[in-house]
């Protein structure tokens, strides 16, 4: 049987505000299933979110939760983790919140390799403000602020965070819940900056405007285009063009930031004596 997630949800705050067919709920539920498998202490876990559709997740999660300013969740999370390294600190963010306004914080958190689990709900659009393009909106797609087509190049956030120093990088999708659970379970067990990009559908503000159909059609698009990394690597370059690799894309061991700071404390105390 799948893990029971109700113990991690604030029942009286549900149903959530996300639109019918939005994949955010699927991502959040499977994040909680991964959390249940990881056996981390619910009372010693803090979830921080910013602004946007993803930001609303903290209201539903029964942990210590903090809903902050746009793009800055990682900065608050850094303070929390530094203050008390025993806490598990999770950041829930979106493609606007985490990759645009919060992009600088994202790369610097990766550089430090601080033990924060960053879960980025990527729905390719600013959903809460009704459909402006984000740094994850594909080139050529239409948005309210790109009525003639988006001329911006979108990020590959997994490549970006890996280059910046994250030691666990993974990508999953709402269409592949079992893989998501595994990614979350492994990601929560990892010590160091954990970056998980979760691709999710926004039928109302992205799909509809780009004629991608409803939620079910968008899930089928994910099924076709998001493929396991191993399979992706077996493809010829031209076959990869419209494909996105998923799974745990990168994992490495490097000393974590708060552990390094413990050494600073030890050395400062040593020099004092």
């Amino acid at each position: 049987m799948a893990e029971d997630i109700n113990r991690y949800l604030r029942q009286d705050k549900l149903p959530h505000i996300w639109c019918p067919g939005c994949g955010h709920g699927t991502i959040m539920a499977n994040m909680l299933r991964g959390f249940a498998r990881s056996r981390l202490d619910q009372d010693k876990t803090v979830v921080v979110s910013g602004i946007g559709c993803s930001g609303r997740a903290t209201g539903y999660l029964d942990f210590d939760t903090l809903h902050v300013t746009h793009g800055r969740a990682l900065t608050f999370a850094t303070g929390i983790k530094m203050a008390n390294p025993e806490l598990t600190v999770i950041v829930v963010t979106g493609d606007g919140d985490g990759a645009a306004i919060g992009g600088n914080h994202l790369i610097h958190a990766c550089r430090r390799n601080i033990d924060i689990k960053v879960v980025l709900f990527n729905n390719s659009i600013y959903g809460m403000t009704a459909g402006q393009f984000s740094p994850m909106t594909p080139t050529g797609a239409t948005a309210t602020t790109a009525p003639y087509g988006n001329i911006d190049q979108n990020f590959d956030l997994c490549e970006l965070t890996r280059s910046a120093g994250a030691t666990f990088v993974a990508r999953g999708a709402a269409q592949q819940p079992r893989q998501l659970i595994k990614i979350f379970e492994k990601g929560f067990a990892h010590r160091g900056l954990t970056f998980i990009e979760a691709i999710t559908q926004c039928p109302v503000n992205y799909g509809r405007r780009n004629k991608l159909g409803g939620a079910r059609d968008m899930l089928n698009w994910q099924k076709e285009h998001i493929i396991n990394q191993t399979k992706y690597e077996s493809l010829a370059a031209e076959e990869r063009q419209d494909k996105i690799p998923s799974g745990i894309l990168y994992q490495d061991k490097r000393e974590e930031y708060t552990e390094r700071y413990e050494k600073v404390i030890a050395s400062a105390r040593g020099s004092e004596n």
Binding site: T69, A77, T78, G79, I80, A83, H105
Partner: peptide, 23 residues
């Protein structure tokens, strides 16, 4: 604990986070 952040905005967020964690 001391941390030099990536910018001023981050420093303010970090301080509030640490405060909520009891510092």
């Amino acid at each position: 604990k001391f941390i030099q952040m990536e910018d001023e905005i981050a420093s303010m967020g970090c301080v509030i986070g640490a405060s909520l964690a009891g510092e």
